[in-house]
């Protein structure tokens, strides 16, 4: 279901109280004018799964953190912010996968110029 960025924290809190306590994955998709962040949450005892979609603009990409409700969101958020160049507000972020001296910012965006070194070979 599609929700807004300002409803995200309250919706996740209310879902956790009603039993959805297992976070499966946080990821994002880059459509060319906007990004969509995806949150997969599951209720293990009743065996139901829910997908939350949040639309954000590419030039104004930031999201609030949900680390206080689900501890497993820590590494997922770091990976998403590193791959898509999205700022996560409310926590201290750190890099996980890539080194800073490579000069890579957001490799999974569609406008990323890659493969240039191999084209020159």
């Amino acid at each position: 279901m599609k929700i807004d960025r300002k409803d995200l924290l309250s919706r996740i809190k209310s879902m956790k109280e009603s039993g959805y306590s297992y976070l499966v994955k946080i990821t994002a998709v880059d459509y060319k004018d906007h990004l969509t962040a995806l949150y997969f949450i599951r209720d293990i005892s009743k065996n139901k799964e829910e997908l939350l979609e949040v639309d954000i603009l590419s030039s104004d990409a930031w999201l609030p953190t949900i680390i206080k409700e689900h501890t497993s969101a820590d590494w997922y958020e770091r990976e998403m912010s590193e791959m898509f160049d999205i700022k996560i507000k409310g926590r201290k972020s750190g890099r996980l996968l890539l080194e800073k001296w490579d000069g890579l910012e957001g490799p999974l965006r569609k406008g990323f110029a890659w493969g240039e070194e191999y084209k020159q070979m």
Binding site: M83, L96, L97, L98, E99, P107, L108, F112, W114
Partner: peptide, 11 residues
């Protein structure tokens, strides 16, 4: 610290 085998499979 991870990332020593990252090769961008999703991309």
């Amino acid at each position: 610290h991870i990332g020593f085998l990252h090769r961008g499979v999703e991309k």
